[in-house]
Design a protein around this nucleic acid. Structure first.
Lengths: 160, 160
DNA sequence: CCGTATCCTTTCGGATACTG
DNA sequence: CAGTATCCGAAAGGATACGG
């Protein structure tokens, strides 16, 4: 493993190859972060997923997601509309009818979302297993580390 | 792995193509949702991204992300460790040294994350543009819809 | 039917202080 | 260095009531 502490600064992009020198702009104002926080929130991905199938009305979406409150569905749809992901069509009839559809931008995101969901489906058992293991072993390091430090504290003195 | 067929009500439609009959398990207890909420939170993706490059220590991560508080970095790392995404190695020396590395599971996620980030980078201008447009036109529907409903309210009566 | 407005609870997350 | 514990403000999000 790498012993040296050659920490590279992430403030600027130099390497363009993601596999070699992978680095984001990790700052708070990074746009990738902003956008990701938006579309990866509690409901957005579900809305995108459902709308990729077909155009839907407000009540349809609300019924199909059915954990969502009226307020949050409205907020989510407004955000997605603002980001240019969904298009909102109001039909001026007496019982109002509003249709929501994905834009081209929204459809292009769906392909990526799909791969994400696929990964999750493929690995959910691994994760569940890892969690069980972790929860079962909780508290094991109290013993282990006390013994370890007691044995090596006098011999292993590292420089700050 | 994952050759179940018991817990999912997803895959039993004849149209297994995502483009045709796309549907998730949209419920609250959907595991895809659970996992997605975990890894798509404020810091997890950044940690995964940085650790894919190489093994890092706690302070290194803290310095490179540098918007994160000590508390949140610890919480994030514990969650990722619990989910089997990162491995934590404690060296029993006097100034404690703890290394964090991605597991195989974590590395497999990185590929997907990468495509996600790529999409965001490619479309961030479109999104910024859409937002400007939306914000500029805020309030336009007050006039438009008032006029529209006023003209059509008497004639358009739709059934419930 | 499709929202908006308000209230209120829960959660997130930073600041700080302390431990080994 | 690498945490843990506690406090507290901010934000997310549900419930409800009301409006067009």
């Amino acid at each position: 493993m790498a012993e040296d502490g050659t920490s590279k600064s992430l403030g600027h992009h130099e390497g363009t190859d993601w596999n070699d020198a992978f680095q984001w702009d990790v700052r708070e104002d990074c746009e990738v972060r902003q956008i990701l926080d938006r579309i990866a929130d509690k409901w957005s991905l579900l809305v995108i997923a459902l709308l990729d199938d077909r155009t839907m009305r407000f009540t349809e979406l609300k019924r199909m997601i059915d954990g969502v409150s009226q307020r949050m569905l409205t907020v989510t749809l407004r955000q997605l509309e603002r980001d240019g992901m969904v298009e909102r069509t109001v039909h001026p009839i007496v019982p109002p009818r509003v249709d929501y559809a994905l834009t081209e931008l929204g459809r292009s995101l769906h392909a990526t979302v799909q791969s994400f969901v696929l990964w999750t489906e493929q690995h959910q058992e691994d994760i569940a297993e890892a969690r069980s293991r972790y929860d079962r072993d909780a508290g094991r390091l109290a013993d282990a580390e006390t013994a370890a430090t007691g044995a090596t504290a006098a011999t292993a003195i590292a420089a700050g």
